[in-house]
């Protein structure tokens, strides 16, 4: 017990003593955040030297992923009280990736505080939320990416079928996306077998579907009766393959992959529900004979798509 306390104390004192070494000027910066589309705003603890602060060569800003490409700075301005610094860039910033701002020298009240390097990023919870909303509404898989349409038109005749399909699909989606993510990152990547991804992803989905089918049939026949018929339809759905592929393309980590697949599943559920509500009403409407059936359903989906275009370019957090 005593030994643990001693070790803990040593680590703590090391931490306390070592922080000023690298963070003397960093602690001088109170807050840093993105501002509008092309600005970064930095708030200092006390007024800083105006001449040095507005010197462009004093700054080096880059995206964390490629440190050797400096972002061109258009303008730097310090507020009247000398505490709030706004850096304007020539191009819009990609605010989803963290940016690093290196300030080579900070002088405040005649004292040199040295170099400061700070990371500017959005809050992680907000980022996760934006992935969720993005997969659900902004890039809805049915209405803005045009995927999973065969099953979409097949199962939206009745509200009950749409709900059954939506629940089954969301569950299989999340399970298969998580397993795919794990196997891709820990099996395919170390072995350099990335070209194998399509075979593996669809193999996982079909195995999960088959396994759930067999297990559910034995364990809970009632549940199987309700959802069993949708299981095979999940296989013929483009979204189920598109989500793991997009996770790989975007390079999401585990939590982000989970949120993304959940958003995709919920978005699909939402699309099914909306469409089935309209199609139930359409049956009572007086549709021209040649438009009856799938034809009018497609045009309805097109109207939905136009409505969902309103979400495009929206970023919430």
């Amino acid at each position: 017990m005593k030994r643990i306390i001693v070790i803990f104390g040593v680590i703590l004192s090391l931490l306390i003593f070592s922080t000023p070494l690298y963070a003397s000027a960093n602690r001088f910066i109170v807050k840093s955040s993105f501002y509008q589309k092309d600005k970064i705003r930095i708030v200092f603890a006390a007024p800083v030297d105006r001449k040095l602060a507005e010197d462009r060569s004093n700054y080096y800003v880059y995206e964390r992923t490629d440190p050797d490409i400096p972002l061109p700075i258009k303008d730097i301005s310090l507020s009247k009280d000398g505490r709030v610094l706004t850096i304007t860039f020539k191009e819009e910033l990609n605010q989803h990736s963290p940016h690093i701002v290196v300030i080579k020298k900070i002088v405040s009240a005649g004292r040199n505080l040295g170099i400061a390097s700070i990371m500017v990023r959005k809050s992680y919870a907000g980022f996760l939320m934006s992935i969720l909303i993005g997969a659900m509404l902004v890039h809805n898989f049915v209405f803005t990416k045009y995927l999973g349409l065969c099953v979409f038109f097949g199962t939206t005749r009745r509200k009950a079928t749409a709900i059954g399909m939506g629940i089954t699909f969301t569950i299989v989606m999340v399970c298969s996306a998580m397993i795919s993510w794990f196997l891709y990152n820990y099996v395919l990547k170390p072995l350099n077998l990335q070209f194998f991804q399509v075979v593996m992803f669809i193999g996982i989905v079909s195995l999960i579907v088959q396994a759930v089918d067999i297990i559910l049939r034995k364990i809970n026949p009632y549940l199987f009766k309700a959802f069993g018929i949708y299981l095979m339809l999940v296989l013929a759905n483009c979204v189920i393959l598109a989500v793991p592929l997009l996770i790989v393309v975007n390079g999401y980590n585990g939590i982000e992959a989970f949120v993304f697949s959940l958003g995709a599943g919920l978005g699909y559920f939402l699309a099914l529900f909306l469409m089935s509500s309209v199609r139930e009403k359409l049956e009572l409407a007086n549709v021209p004979p040649s438009y009856q059936g799938l034809s009018i359903a497609f045009i309805t989906a097109g109207l939905f798509g136009l409505a969902f275009m309103g979400f495009s370019g929206m970023s919430i957090f």
């Binding site: 803005t144 034809s295 359903a297 097109g302 275009m309």
Partner: peptide, 13 residues
């Protein structure tokens, strides 16, 4: 891109 829905719908009609 959205016009794909309308185009297919009209073609079917």
């Amino acid at each position: 891109p959205v016009a794909g829905f309308f185009c297919v719908g009209f073609m079917m009609a």
